[in-house]
Simulated scan of single mutants.
Amino acid sequence: MTEQQFLAVLAPLIEEITGNAFSQEQLDVTFGDLDIDSLNQIEIISRIEDEFDCHIEDSTLRTIRTPRGLLDHISKSTSPA
């Protein structure tokens, strides 16, 4: 999965939830600073998991603070062995 593929899925989700546009420059901004509370963050991650056919453990979910953190984790878990 490329960063562009990730953004193509993530940007519309964030816009739907917050009403604000999301761009590549915001990948390192915390979810909180993007006006995404913990419940919305869980919804976003769940939908990303469905889209990219992956699963993120609950213990890992608590460590993901930014969209880039989510991208990095999913990239590692979906890369070919």
Rank of each mutant, 00 (worst) to 15 (best):
S59Y: 13
E25T: 06
P80V: 15
A21F: 08
M1F: 10
D28Q: 14
V9E: 11
F31N: 12
E57L: 10
L7T: 08
E25C: 07
V29C: 08
D33K: 15
A11Q: 08
D28W: 07
D33E: 15
C54W: 01
L27F: 12
Q5W: 07
S75D: 06
E57T: 02
K76W: 05
S77F: 07
I44V: 12
R65L: 09
T66R: 05
G19D: 09
I48M: 06
D50V: 04
F52S: 03
L7E: 10
E16P: 01
Q5D: 14
L71W: 13
S38R: 08
D72V: 08
L7F: 13
A11T: 05
D53Y: 02
T63S: 11
P80D: 15
L70A: 05
I17W: 04
L39H: 04
I42C: 04
G19A: 06
I42F: 06
D58Q: 05
G32C: 09
L34D: 01
D53H: 04
T18Q: 00
I56D: 02
E25P: 02
D72R: 09
V29T: 15
F52D: 11
T30C: 14
M1V: 10
T30I: 11
T63H: 10
G69C: 04
E3V: 05
I36T: 10
L61P: 07
T30D: 13
E49S: 00
S79H: 14
D58G: 03
S59N: 15
I17T: 09
K76E: 06
E25R: 05
I45V: 15
D35L: 14
I44H: 01
I42Y: 04
Q4H: 12
S79E: 15
G32M: 12
E3Y: 05
A21K: 12
E25G: 10
G19S: 10
D53S: 07
I14M: 02
D33Y: 13
G69S: 04
L71G: 02
S79N: 15
T60A: 15
A81T: 08
Q5T: 05
T2G: 11
F52C: 09
H73L: 10
R68S: 12
S23A: 14
P67F: 10
I56H: 01
S75E: 11
C54K: 00
F22M: 08
D35G: 11
V29A: 10
